[in-house]
Amino acid sequence: MQQTTQSDALLPPGFGELEGFVAYWAGETNDIRWDRRSRAAMAEIRRFYDAMLPRGEDAMKYLEKFPLAEMPDDATRLFRLLLSLAHASMAVEMHRQPRAKFSPFPHGMHIGRGPWPQGS
């Protein structure tokens, strides 16, 4: 399959350093993003948090160019990474560990429908 370098880029120009996080942290729904964060080791969560946080404001500014529900694929991935930052912050800023203290996992709790778009 022939593709140009441009279309091979997973993320918009200027966000290339975050590409390594796309496979795990650009989950499609809120429930998936929550599950991924819940299963990750603290070091992994921290690595993503530390890389994404300084780009959070830039990402929001970039994404504001598009209608919320109709972003191109690379922007959608960046959007999902941004949303995963909220999940990572639960571990980093609140629990100081991957999941709520003493909480069971799997816990059987689901976000049946998340906020939208990119909710469910």
Partner: peptide, 23 residues
């Protein structure tokens, strides 16, 4: 985008609060 990000954070926090209750 910013409001949607807030909503994700809000949704996350509600989930975490509830999870603290579950166990």
């Amino acid at each position: 985008v910013r409001q949607r990000f807030q909503q994700e954070h809000h949704n996350c926090r509600m989930g975490e609060i509830f999870l603290e209750d579950v166990s």
